[in-house]
Design a protein around this nucleic acid. Structure first.
Lengths: 191, 191
DNA sequence: GTCTATATCATGATAGAC
DNA sequence: GTCTATCATGATATAGAC
């Protein structure tokens, strides 16, 4: 429970972010949010219109954070291959899954234009960012000229998102790493 | 609602399978199952011990079905690359997601040894099956000898599972296909 | 801004008649 | 085997006092 140095709306948003990550939108109840945040019923409905409104604030913040984290790794020095490798091998809490990607399996998120938008925009941005790096690699002769940046980027993001699925199914992060090694082996410049 | 030619337990299982696919375990209520199946409260608790028991029966059947579908494609004639391509390009209801993979994002499935087991076993079987095909391809000189069958297999399954995530995020199956094309481009034998 | 009270419906099940 | 109570608790709010 968040108790120090945070305003009530902050505590509500942070608690909601955690619960959405752990249990998804459908699995997260207002009651659970109140308990975790230490806020009262009245406070929550004073600061937010309801569960969807609070979830939107939480999802937007998580999306921003994920984007910033990815950008930090992707803009680090190194060759295109090295930057992609750094992204794929970056430390992750694999068994917790992706706080953004997991939302796509939630029926109420997907059904809501508003709630789905930040999820879509984040994954879309990531694909575009990676596609640009692949194109850079092609120009530098690091990747085969026949490869399509957008296709490779989609395969990279999918491998990460699917890696979480494999890891959670098996109860171990190993499967994530195995898939990442497989993709890196396929991407590795021969030169 | 299932009404003809099916026993009550059958109707309950089929309705549960659909709901688990659409809404996950946490998002599926006994009431919704009863409404969809047309069965009464009493029938459900007569044939099954409760929601977890019914879900287990539903998940086991979905797992069997998924395995049979995959095996049919993977054992079809063709070179290893062609069989992998056939698997990746196989017709899918992409926006509905994977009925097995989506369960890994459900906190109560992952928390339950019993409910997670069929999910784990199915994805594990699939990885092993694909790994064998990759090894075949290496023997035939279709894939580079340096590749690891298990790694490539994990990347393939992850690309599919992650492809569903991308598709559902964007609300269109296109992203799934883009990722698959990217992976196939990387796998394609040059010879 | 926060609190407690209240409201309505859903959840997940049990009991016992038929 | 199926049906209709019944039940305790949770979900998702609203109302109004403080």
């Amino acid at each position: 429970m968040y108790s120090v140095g945070m305003s009530t709306p902050e505590r509500l948003i942070e608690s909601t972010r955690e619960l959405l990550w752990e249990r998804g939108y459908v699995g997260t109840s207002p009651k659970a949010i109140l308990e975790r945040s230490g806020a009262g019923q009245g406070s929550m409905y004073h600061h937010f219109k309801g569960k969807p409104d609070l979830a939107l604030a939480a999802i937007r913040r998580t999306a921003e954070e994920m984007r910033a984290t990815a950008e930090a790794v992707l803009s680090s020095p190194g060759t295109p291959y090295q930057r992609i490798e750094a992204y794929l091998r970056r430390e992750r809490d694999v068994l917790r899954g992706c706080p953004i990607g997991r939302l796509t399996m939630d029926p109420e998120i997907v059904a809501s234009q508003e709630l789905r938008a930040p999820v879509d925009e984040t994954l879309d941005w990531l694909r575009e960012r990676l596609a640009g790096i692949v194109e850079e690699g092609k120009e530098q002769g690091q990747f085969a000229p026949g490869l399509d940046g957008e296709e490779i980027a989609a395969a990279i993001v999918a491998t990460v998102q699917g890696g979480y699925v494999l890891a959670r199914a098996s109860g171990s992060p190993a499967a994530f790493d195995t898939g990442v090694r497989g993709l890196l082996a396929l991407l590795r410049p021969t030169a």
